[in-house]
Structure formats: structure tokens, C-alpha cells
Computed example of a mutant assay.
Amino acid sequence: MTTRWLTPEEQRAWRAYMGATLLLEDALDRQLQQEAGMPHLYYSILANLSETPERRLRMTDLAEKLKITRSRLTYAVTRLEKDGLLRREECRWDKRGSVAALTDEGMAVVERLAPGHVETVRATLFDHLSPQQVGQLEEIFTRVAQALQEEAGRGAAGDVPWRRRSSSCS
């Protein structure tokens, strides 16, 4: 098989993407660490739960929404549970699974952090783009995500992070 090397344009685009995503994630982490002493992933867990009916979601579904391994989610949920921001419950419809449920204290944290988080997202990303570029950004990453998920769907179950096995119940 012949290697399909990146063109100079593709190489520049790839490096720009990698540099920007690392800087964006760092800015989001720094803001949340300063305001709440938590990484962006932990805030994302709380924010996703705050947007679901009854503020509950099965752990496997939450891992899929966040595009992370179940073991990484379990580790984060354990920490958030210790802090009283969420709790784990047995899954009523499947005794093998568990549900992450946002507590009232966790909801209060989301409500307190959301304005600063949104301002950081706006200042680090959207303030630098035109409305047309925002549309293009959505179109590009929607297309990439769909292609990757379709490709993973054709492969083994472990091809996407949220389906990878861990030692925890999910």
C-alpha cells in the first residue's frame, strides 16, 4: 500500500487544526480550573446532564455523548460523586447498567459556571469568526464526525471510545 502523504495545504490545515484545538482546550481548562477547580471534562459531564430530562443519563449514553471511554467517564463520575455534584443510580430498565444523575448542588455549579464558560468559548473561538465561517465550521466538523461514526459502525464494536470495554459497570 502506498502512503498518501498530505499535500502542503493539507499539512498546514492539519497543523492549524491541531494547534487551535490544543489551545482551545487549554483555555477552557484554565478558565474552569480557576473558577471551579475542575477540568473541562468534568464541566461537560455536568452540563450534559443538566440538559437531559430529569437530569439523568445512562452511563453508556453519557460516554457516547462525550465521545470518551467508559473507564474515563467512570473515573470522572466517581470524583464528581465524591464532591456531591452527581450520584450514580441503578438503571431501572437494565440491572447491568447504571445512571448518572445530576444533584441540585451539581445543577447550581453548572448555573454558576455557565456564563464564564460561554464567555471563554465566545472569546477564544467565535469572536474570531464571521457568521459564514461559523456555518462552515459546523458543516466541516459535522461531516468529519459523521464519516468517522459511519466508519466505526462498519468495524468492530470497540472502534469508538464509548464502546470500549472497561472494568466498570456502565
Results as ranks from 00 to 15, higher is better:
Met1Glu: 11
Met1Thr: 10
Thr3Arg: 13
Trp5Gln: 15
Leu6Val: 09
Thr7Tyr: 09
Pro8Phe: 03
Glu10Ala: 15
Glu10Ser: 09
Arg12Met: 15
Trp14His: 14
Arg15Phe: 07
Arg15Leu: 10
Ala16Phe: 11
Tyr17Lys: 13
Tyr17Thr: 12
Tyr17Ala: 14
Met18His: 12
Met18Arg: 14
Met18Thr: 14
Gly19Asn: 14
Thr21Gln: 08
Thr21Phe: 15
Leu23Val: 03
Leu23Tyr: 07
Leu23Thr: 03
Leu24Gly: 05
Glu25Ser: 14
Asp26Trp: 10
Leu28Pro: 07
Asp29His: 13
Arg30Tyr: 07
Leu32Gly: 05
Leu32Trp: 03
Gln33Lys: 09
Glu35Asp: 12
Ala36Thr: 02
Gly37Pro: 06
Met38Glu: 09
His40Glu: 12
His40Ile: 11
Tyr42Thr: 02
Ile45Thr: 01
Leu46Pro: 06
Leu46Val: 04
Leu46Gln: 07
Ala47Trp: 00
Ala47Thr: 00
Leu49Lys: 02
Leu49Tyr: 03
Ser50Asp: 07
Ser50Asn: 08
Glu51Met: 09
Glu51Asp: 08
Glu54Thr: 11
Glu54Asn: 06
Arg55Thr: 08
Arg55Pro: 03
Leu57Met: 13
Thr60Ser: 07
Thr60Leu: 04
Thr60Met: 04
Asp61Cys: 06
Asp61Trp: 10
Leu62Arg: 00
Ala63Tyr: 04
Ala63Thr: 05
Ala63His: 01
Glu64Val: 07
Glu64Pro: 02
Lys65Phe: 03
Leu66Ile: 05
Ile68Glu: 01
Thr69Ala: 04
Arg72Ser: 11
Leu73Pro: 01
Thr74His: 14
Tyr75Gln: 09
Ala76Arg: 07
Ala76Glu: 12
Arg79Ser: 11
Glu81Tyr: 04
Glu81Gly: 03
Glu81Pro: 00
Lys82Asn: 15
Lys82Val: 00
Asp83Pro: 00
Leu85Ile: 01
Leu85Gln: 04
Leu86Gln: 00
Leu86Pro: 08
Arg87Glu: 08
Arg87Ser: 06
Arg88Glu: 14
Glu89Ser: 05
Glu89Thr: 01
Arg92Val: 15
Ser98Cys: 12
Ser98Gln: 12
Val99Ala: 02
Ala100Pro: 12
Ala100Met: 04
Ala101Val: 13
Ala101Asp: 05
Ala101Gly: 04
Ala101Asn: 04
Leu102His: 01
Asp104Lys: 11
Asp104Pro: 00
Gly106Thr: 01
Gly106Leu: 03
Val109Lys: 14
Arg112Leu: 01
Arg112Asp: 06
Leu113Phe: 00
Leu113Gln: 06
Pro115Asn: 03
Gly116Thr: 04
Gly116His: 06
Gly116Met: 04
His117Ser: 02
Val118Asp: 10
Val118Gly: 00
Val121Pro: 02
Thr124Ser: 14
Leu125Phe: 15
Leu125Gly: 02
Asp127Thr: 10
His128Asp: 06
Pro131Ser: 08
Gln132Ala: 15
Val134Tyr: 11
Gly135His: 10
Gln136Val: 14
Leu137Thr: 11
Glu138Asp: 14
Glu138Met: 13
Ile140Met: 09
Phe141Ser: 09
Thr142His: 07
Gln146Ser: 11
Ala147Tyr: 10
Gln149Tyr: 08
Glu150Arg: 10
Glu150Met: 06
Ala152Glu: 09
Ala152Asn: 01
Arg154Glu: 11
Gly155Lys: 05
Val160Phe: 08
Val160Lys: 06
Pro161Glu: 02
Arg163Asp: 03
Ser166Ala: 14
Ser168Phe: 12
Ser168Ala: 15
Cys169Thr: 15
